[in-house]
Amino acid sequence: MAKNVLVVDDSSSVRQVVGIALKSAGYDVIEACDGRDALGKLTGQKVHLIISDVNMPNMDGITFVKEVKKLANYKFTPIIMLTTESQESKKAEGQAAGAKAWVVKPFQPAQMLAAVSKLILP
């Protein structure tokens, strides 16, 4: 059974690239365009890993992580945060919230795949 990865980013091209990379490796991908949208998709289905952008409309990535940590069925789900080097303060805040895995944008699809593989294999 393929592992589900939830990709949360307001940029559809980022979602598309991450999706292409992960699907090519055998993961199943669920997309969401912001934190609020993503929370709506965390119901019922098992999600094995979450990849989330930080800066998004409606609900930013940090708030999203804090919300995920409140959900009994998802609070231990590994989360990879997408960041840019200019977001150090955000990173500290996110780490405190429990998001320890950070991938710096821009990344190559292969890099993203490697990061995901360290946390779960397909």
Binding site: S13, V17, K105, P106, P109
Partner: peptide
């Protein structure tokens, strides 16, 4: 916030495509 996010997203996505 919206201005920053626009620039931020463009930069991040552009990097994906080198």
């Amino acid at each position: 916030g919206a201005i920053f996010r626009a620039a931020h997203t463009i930069k991040g996505s552009a990097g994906l495509f080198g």
